[in-house]
Amino acid sequence: MYLIHAQLMARSGAFLPEEAAAIVRGFARAEERVEYVSAHPEGFPQPVLGLYLLGGSRREAELVAEAVCRRALAASPQLQGFALLACRAAVPREPFADF
């Protein structure tokens, strides 16, 4: 399973709606194997969606997440004020990296 972060850019003071995760999840197709979507409206510096996908590779998961997000942003009236900046796998920090 891969966690892909989709970084969004808000246009003209748009706020990420409370139901953003459910909206994006609704645009996923069964064969894309999106297991879960979370929304972080106060992500820094921009809002972030977290898409959890089953996939063969990290790159495949990133491409699927990008496709799902682009469909949702293009078709959902609630997400009209947003653009997709990037879709990248979340890479965990190494334990004790700061020591």
Score class of each variant (00 low, 15 high):
M1I: 11
Y2T: 01
L3G: 02
L3P: 00
L3Q: 05
H5M: 07
H5Q: 06
H5R: 04
Q7P: 12
Q7H: 15
Q7E: 15
M9F: 12
A10E: 04
S12K: 10
G13T: 01
F15G: 11
P17S: 04
P17C: 04
E18G: 08
A20N: 06
A22I: 06
A22S: 10
V24P: 02
R25P: 02
F27P: 00
A28K: 06
A28F: 08
R29A: 09
R29L: 13
R29N: 06
E31L: 09
E32N: 02
V34Y: 00
V34T: 00
V34M: 02
V34A: 01
Y36K: 08
A39R: 02
H40P: 03
P41S: 11
F44N: 10
P45M: 05
Q46M: 12
P47Q: 01
V48W: 03
L49A: 01
L49P: 02
L51C: 02
Y52T: 05
L53M: 03
L53G: 01
L54E: 15
G55Q: 04
S57C: 12
E62Y: 05
L63M: 14
L63G: 12
L63I: 14
A65I: 03
A65E: 05
E66I: 10
E66L: 13
E66A: 14
A67Q: 10
A67S: 13
A67L: 10
V68F: 00
V68W: 01
C69L: 09
C69I: 10
A74V: 13
A74C: 13
Q78L: 11
L79I: 01
L79R: 03
Q80G: 14
G81M: 10
G81R: 11
F82T: 08
A83N: 11
L84E: 05
L84K: 07
L85P: 05
A86H: 12
C87D: 04
R88G: 12
A89S: 12
P92V: 07
P95G: 05
A97I: 14
D98M: 08
D98S: 08
F99I: 15
